[in-house]
Write a protein that binds this DNA or RNA. Sequence first.
DNA 1: CAAACTTATTAAACAACTTTAATAAGTAAT
DNA 2: ATTACTTATTAAAGTTGTTTAATAAGTTTG
Lengths: 334, 334
Amino acid sequence: MTDGRLTSQPANPAIMRGIRTVLLERGSATKAELSRSLQISFPTAGKFLDDMEIRGEAISVGYDESSGGRRARRYRYDPDYVHGLAIFLEKDETRYLLFNCLGEAIEQGYEDSILDEDASRLTDLIGRIKQAHPKLRSVSLGVPGAVNDGTIFLIPSYEKYRNFDLKSFVQQRTGLPAVVENDMNAAVLGYIARAKLEDRSTVVYLYLGQNGPGAGIVVNGEVVRGKSFFSGEVAFVPVRDRGNFAEALKEGESARTEAIGRLIASTASILNPHYFVFNKGEIGEAMLEPILERAAAYVPREHLPKLAASELRGDYLAGLQSLGLGLLLSQTDG
Amino acid sequence: MTDGRLTSQPANPAIMRGIRTVLLERGSATKAELSRSLQISFPTAGKFLDDMEIRGEAISVGYDESSGGRRARRYRYDPDYVHGLAIFLEKDETRYLLFNCLGEAIEQGYEDSILDEDASRLTDLIGRIKQAHPKLRSVSLGVPGAVNDGTIFLIPSYEKYRNFDLKSFVQQRTGLPAVVENDMNAAVLGYIARAKLEDRSTVVYLYLGQNGPGAGIVVNGEVVRGKSFFSGEVAFVPVRDRGNFAEALKEGESARTEAIGRLIASTASILNPHYFVFNKGEIGEAMLEPILERAAAYVPREHLPKLAASELRGDYLAGLQSLGLGLLLSQTDG
DNA sequence: CAAACTTATTAAACAACTTTAATAAGTAAT
DNA sequence: ATTACTTATTAAAGTTGTTTAATAAGTTTG
């Protein structure tokens, strides 16, 4: 080693991630608390935290009350140590939001949609934001299409982006770690994060849409993609003797309620999810009880999911933030 | 340290499990192959393998052909180093099968059903088998009810076992690690293992039954249990305007084919599974094409699962064996 | 308020892996 | 057969964690 630093740890990513997570989840922690909750030894917790304090990543906030002996020093995370960028690629426009580790907005804006144009306009945008905000360390991209491991597989009306590895493209052009996710999948992850549901929950998030319904589905805490990225295409569920779910939706209030009730009954019998979430703008709180009633005609009430009406855009954003935060937390900054 | 052994490793369970898995999957391996495929250093692979050879767990089978330099020594796993026991708790009888690490049968037998009686008769049986077969190191129990982490939550007509922690009971009474799983869940896991599907597959295994249908469902390689252990209760899926899947099944050949087609369409739209498997005794190979045809009326063919007719009892057994093998592989024998 | 106790932190010894260097056992060409 | 090369194995150092011991900083009690 050529430099004269005394503390030096190659920063085990699992431990770094654990400390950051605990510090952010609990607001603050002592070395002993970190050691206990992460199942690492006290000296290890101490070394990592000391390093983080030197870098300015962790900040001491004084001492705990004594519990009979020497008082423990307490630390918190600097939520502005790094920032993340969420970008919504939509039909009409491209929105972006820069956020800190607590999910607080730093800056936001929008541009004309990038979907009809070249992806290099996207990396240009990210490059400009990076210039202005050197703390930027992650990019989360939400797209209206099927995504697997950063590659877009299906994206109706934007053939140009089909089979395009957007994640690698952005990472190489910007030098920032990126994550790409489908809009409804991001929304369901965001709902789970915002509602603080337990990890490994099973949740269905339904969006009715003008161009037909779709759902984001998480089972045991993991996004379901399926064999041909067709999962969540609930438009095709044959809820009636003639006509599928999409068709039934078009036939007025009563048929719609019945169709949704049957869809819930179907998912309850197959997946038995903990939650079934609607876009509040489409299905308000007042509709939940009537819908539940219809579903209960098919499946015993105790096995039906809890219904919820939530704000889709907020959940979508929370999902992209949560995915970006995941990248921030496991970073092993040089 | 008081004994004079030269080699001594506290047997890191992850490494032990990895070496055993590779050795069994590939039939044999060299130290360099283990090091590469497990991402551990060569010296570590060597130390663990040497220890295993001393214990008789691994066996040297000579040297590889030279690839230009010194020849590498090749090792295989002794499939009879430890044995597992699978027990099927069924209505009419209790079957058991003792097997080795390759899944080969060592001994099998049956007794009157234990479900109407006390669980201690089960531990007595295990105790007797353990006496006769000292290599026994794991017990897998298949039960016709909903199970979560070893506890039976729902078990129709055997109230005595409801909310009973069968896993802990067996582990404490016999001193053997145990795993408890529902019959259809075990079957779907067994199918995945026998068909060598890739990990993280999504598969639905349908059983029609006399007392109504049920399914075992695996998503992304993990068993789906749901919020109230109701997942897979496809009897309740409202496939028609009046009447659910169970009712439609009762109305003759044509209605049955249509109902199954709709169920497949529903699961395809929701989960988009890779495989949809039938019990060969109920739905033969010849029925697969007509059923697929019906499903294709609702969902584009490329998004439908591959249909298969398989032997349910064999899959069930394979599932219990696979779960038991999991216990055997991660054991850190004293 | 000083001894006895509690709890937090730091330091030293230990453990188990990885990396690098040395040695062993081959092959191929002269 | 000897030299040059290749690959496997073993040995020695180096890393990064854990465990145990020592020290620091409190509280409580006679």
